[in-house]
């Protein structure tokens, strides 16, 4: 029954669950980041570079950004649904939002994984 709720027949349930899962993952990452900053206290450029050097941290940051994108998509989409009653305008805004979030993902991927 629970699994049935998560199939394509109930997209709202999927959105609801994704919003929560991404929130949980981002909360965990935020605490990790805060603790890491407090422990390492990067103050000069070299320290800042080595702060971003470990591959596990880069992957974690990239995964954080993916969660952030999904979370922002669902959240801002809800805001548009509530405050933009005109369907055509809303579709344009949603396309703009998706383009922005994909561009941010590309940028973040370059920063965290390629650079």
């Amino acid at each position: 029954m629970v699994i049935d709720l998560l199939t394509k027949r109930y997209p709202g349930m999927r959105a609801w669950l994704m919003q929560r899962l991404t929130a949980f993952a981002m909360a965990a990452y935020s605490i990790m980041l805060l603790v890491r900053i407090i422990i390492l206290q990067p103050a000069v450029y070299e320290e800042w570079l080595s702060f971003f050097q470990p591959i596990w941290f880069r992957i974690a940051s990239w995964l954080f950004w993916i969660c952030l994108s999904v979370h922002a998509w669902l959240g801002v989409r809800d805001v548009f649904k509530d405050y933009v009653p005109d369907y055509d305008i809303r579709v344009v805004l949603l396309k703009l939002l998706a383009t922005l979030l994909w561009a941010y993902i590309a940028w973040a991927s370059w920063l965290f994984l390629v650079r």
Binding site: Y45, W48, L49, A72, G75, V79, Y104, W107, L111
Partner: peptide
């Protein structure tokens, strides 16, 4: 909801500051 919107709006600033701070020592300063 309001803070969520604010956090969404500052995303490009976060990426830009990260990009700059990591690119060179001068930019970091």
């Amino acid at each position: 909801r309001a803070t969520g919107c604010i956090l969404f709006l500052i995303l490009p600033a976060i990426l830009l500051l990260l990009q700059l701070s990591l690119s060179s020592a001068q930019h970091f300063e």
